[in-house]
C-alpha cells in the first residue's frame, strides 16, 4: 500500500535546454510505494521532467528525494541517491549481451553477491530475459528490450523508478503484459514509480495518482480514478 510521506517532492522546477526553457515552475509529489503517471500532449515537457529529475538538463528549483536535494548534482550522483530512469526508446546496449546490460545497471553497487542474486531475481520476474541472457540484446524484440530496460534499471535497487513512454513502439498486447508486470513489481516490491505515458487510459488504470502537464506547468493533479471518471478533464487534456 502507499504511504503518505513523500518520497519525491518537486517544487518550482525550471528546466532548459541551453536557452530554450521547457519547464516553468513545476510542482509534483510521489509518495512511497506509489505509482504516479504524468500525462500531457507532445512537447508539454513530460520527458524533460524526467530528464530534469536525473540532472540531464539545466535545472533550477527543488527536487527532494527522501529529503536530499538533487538539483545541481550530476546524473551519476543522483543515480546513487536512488533514482533509476528507463529512457524513451529503452536505451538498450544492443551489442552487449542481456546479462551485460543487467550488470551495467548495477554499476554503482559494490556488493557482487547481491548483484548476482538480483540478476537471478529479475530473471525470475522476466523469464524471457533468462532464456536470452547470453545473447546480444539488440537481437531481441521490442517488448523484450523494454523488459530488459526495466530490469536493468531495477538492478540499481532504486527508491524511485522513472519510466519514459514504456509502451512506445509496442503492440497493444505486449504493452498490457508489460504494465501487468510493472503493477506486480509495484505491489510485491513496493517500488515507487513515476511514469510518462501517451496511453492515458491504460496508465490511469494502473496508476494511483496522475498529473497533467501543459506547456511546462502542472495544470491538474489528482487520484487516477477521479481523472478517469471526469469526462471534462479527459476531453480537455487527454483527448479521449
Amino acid at each position: 500500500m502507499t504511504g503518505t510521506d513523500p518520497l519525491l517532492r518537486v517544487a518550482g522546477l525550471h528546466a532548459a535546454y541551453r536557452s530554450v526553457k521547457v519547464l516553468h515552475g513545476l510542482d509534483l509529489e510521489v509518495r512511497r510505494g506509489e505509482v504516479v503517471v504524468l500525462l500531457g500532449a507532445n512537447g508539454a515537457g513530460k520527458t524533460t521532467t524526467l530528464r530534469a529529475l536525473c540532472g540531464m538538463v539545466d535545472t533550477q528549483g527543488s527536487v527532494l528525494l527522501d529529503g536530499v536535494e538533487l538539483v545541481g548534482r550530476s546524473t551519476e550522483w543522483i543515480v546513487r541517491q536512488g533514482i533509476a530512469h528507463v529512457p524513451q526508446g529503452r536505451g538498450i546496449f544492443g551489442v552487449l549481451t542481456v546479462e551485460e546490460n543487467m550488470r551495467a545497471g548495477a554499476w554503482g553497487r559494490r556488493d557482487a553477491k547481491g548483484v548476482d542474486a538480483d540478476i537471478e531475481r529479475w530473471y525470475g520476474v522476466f523469464p524471457r530475459l533468462a532464456e536470452r541472457r547470453r545473447q546480444r540484446a539488440g537481437g531481441m524484440s521490442g517488448g523484450e528490450q523494454q523488459m530488459l530496460a526495466v530490469a536493468r534499471a531495477l538492478m540499481a535497487r532504486p527508491k524511485l523508478l522513472l519510466l519514459d513512454e514504456p509502451s512506445l513502439g509496442l503492440a497493444q498486447i505486449v504493452t498490457r503484459g508489460l504494465f501487468r508486470q510493472l503493477e506486480e513489481i509495484n505491489r510485491d516490491e513496493g517500488m515507487s514509480m513515476l511514469i510518462v505515458e501517451q496511453n492515458a487510459e491504460l496508465a490511469l488504470s494502473f496508476a494511483h495518482r496522475g498529473y497533467v502537464i501543459e506547456s511546462g506547468h502542472i495544470v491538474l493533479g489528482g487520484q487516477a480514478a477521479d481523472i478517469r471518471a471526469d469526462e471534462g478533464m479527459r476531453r480537455a487534456y487527454l483527448g479521449y
Binding site: 546524473t75 551519476e76 543515480v79 546496449f93 551485460e100 550488470r103 551495467a104 554499476w107 554503482g108
Partner: peptide, 18 residues
C-alpha cells in the same frame, strides 16, 4: 563493461550512473 556501455549508447550509460 562501462567503456563498452558508453560506446554502445552514451546517454543510456549516463542514466545508469556510469
Amino acid at each position: 563493461l562501462g567503456y563498452r556501455a558508453v560506446a554502445a549508447n552514451r546517454e543510456a550509460a549516463q542514466v545508469l550512473g556510469i
